[in-house]
Amino acid sequence: MENIKLKPFIRKDLDILFIGLNPAVISNKKGHYFSVKQSLWNQLYHSGLITKEVSKENADELIFGSTAFNIEQMNFGITDLVTHIANSNSNEVKPTEDDCIRLEKDILNYKPRVAIIIHSKVLKKFVFKHLGIKECESNSGYMGKLIKGCDTTFYNIAFPHGNAIADKDKIKRYKEVKDFISKR
C-alpha cells in the first residue's frame, strides 16, 4: 500500500463538491486528482462548468484549488469516500461504514451547495446503503437533498471514463448542475 499524497480539496463555501471512490495509483503518484485521463476536465469544459480547457497534469490545482476558470468564479472541491487507499481497481476497494460516517460528517461540516457522486460504488455504499436512499441508475442526475438537516443538493453523474455511458450524457448532467448552481 502506498502513502497517500492526494489531499482532498474540501473547505467551507464550496459550490460543488465532487465525491469519488478513492485515489487512483497514478494520480496519487503524480499528486494530482484525475491526472490519468483528460475525460473529467473535458466534460466540465464542454458543460460550461469551467471556462477554459485545462491539462490533466495540474487541472485539480486550477479547478479545485482556485476559482479563476470556474463558472462565475465558483468554488469547487473534491474528496473521496475512501481517502486512505490508492488503488486503480475499484473492485478491490471496500468502503466501510466508518468511511461513510466520515464522508457524511464532512458534508455536514462543510455544507457544499452541491455534492456530485461520481462513482457507482459511492452511490451504492454511501447513498443507497448508508443513507438509505431508494436506488436509481448511474448517471441519473438530480437526487435532491439526501441528508437530514443539510441543504446540500446531490447529483449522480457517472465516472468520467471506463464505462458504457457516453460523454454527451455525462456532459448533459453537468449542464444540469451548471443551470442549478447558476440560479442564485
Rank of each mutant, 00 (worst) to 15 (best):
N156M: 11
A158G: 01
K134R: 10
V127E: 12
N87G: 15
F64E: 00
I165H: 01
S55H: 13
N89V: 09
N89H: 11
N89S: 15
E135K: 06
F64I: 01
V122D: 01
D151I: 03
I101P: 00
G77E: 03
R102P: 05
L62A: 05
T153I: 14
I165P: 00
K111D: 08
K170Q: 02
V114H: 11
V127A: 04
R173Q: 14
I117C: 09
P95I: 05
N109E: 14
M74R: 15
I71A: 13
T79I: 08
F154T: 02
A68Q: 12
F128Q: 11
A115T: 04
K129N: 11
S55A: 11
D106L: 13
E61L: 14
K170S: 01
F159A: 06
P95F: 09
H119W: 09
K105M: 11
I165T: 02
T153A: 15
V127L: 08
A164G: 09
E57H: 09
P160F: 08
S120C: 10
I63F: 02
L131A: 03
H84G: 07
I117V: 14
D169E: 15
D60G: 03
D169W: 03
K94I: 10
E92R: 04
N58G: 06
C150A: 05
F69V: 10
G144W: 05
E72W: 10
H119Y: 07
L108C: 13
N91C: 12
F126S: 07
F76D: 00
H119T: 04
N89M: 11
K168F: 04
Y142M: 10
Y174C: 03
K124F: 08
I133F: 11
N70A: 11
A68H: 12
T67E: 10
A166C: 03
F76C: 02
L103M: 06
K105T: 07
P112H: 14
I85Y: 06
T152L: 06
